[in-house]
């Protein structure tokens, strides 16, 4: 099953993804502040703990509106519950690399490269049970522009952050 990406993106999805990037900036900002009072491990540990509580509160609030179509959904494989392990290892790796000669900008730039290369592979082969997608020429042009802009900001724009 290959989803043709020829049709334009739903603008709502585009704005949601762009806004999600804004949430990431806020999250990194607050977690970074907590890291300065403690350390990177504590900051991430506390964020996962408070996040667990926040998720439970949200689930309780939204309980009356939960989806009723349980029967129609495929069963979740056991490994799909382990995404958090990947996040925990990411914290360990980046708290090492920001203190290496790479510093924050190098960590961000190489992390961006790793993320984009993985996402291309993931879409191409539909990794981890998600739909396959093939990029067209316009997708590649958009990718080039966004990556070039991000590299400029990371390497020359935000100074010695």
């Amino acid at each position: 099953m290959t989803t043709p990406s020829a049709h334009r993106l739903n603008p709502l999805h585009l704005m949601a993804a762009f806004g999600t990037g804004g949430l990431l900036t806020l999250m990194v900002h607050f977690n970074g502040e907590l890291g300065r009072y403690g350390n990177a491990l504590f900051s991430s540990w506390a964020a996962h703990g408070t996040g667990t509580v926040a998720a439970l509160v949200l689930l309780a609030i939204l309980y009356p509106w939960r989806s009723r179509s349980e029967g129609a959904k495929p069963r979740a494989p056991l490994w799909s519950y382990l995404g958090g392990i990947s996040g925990a290892v990411t914290v360990m790796l980046t708290s090492f690399t920001v203190n290496s000669p790479l510093a924050l900008s190098g960590t961000l730039a190489l992390g961006l490269a790793g993320q984009v290369i993985f996402s291309i592979v993931a879409d191409r082969w539909g990794l981890f049970g998600l739909p396959m997608r093939r990029p067209d020429r316009r997708d590649l042009a958009a990718m080039t522009l966004i990556l070039a802009g991000s590299a400029l900001i990371i390497l020359f724009g935000r100074g010695e952050a």
Binding site: L14, A17, F18, G19, T20, G21, G22, L24, T25, L112, Q115, V116, S119, A142, M143, I146, L147, G149, S150, I153, I154
Partner: peptide, 9 residues
Amino acid sequence: ALLVIGGQM
């Protein structure tokens, strides 16, 4: 990935 990165930047 690209749109979240763009929004973050």
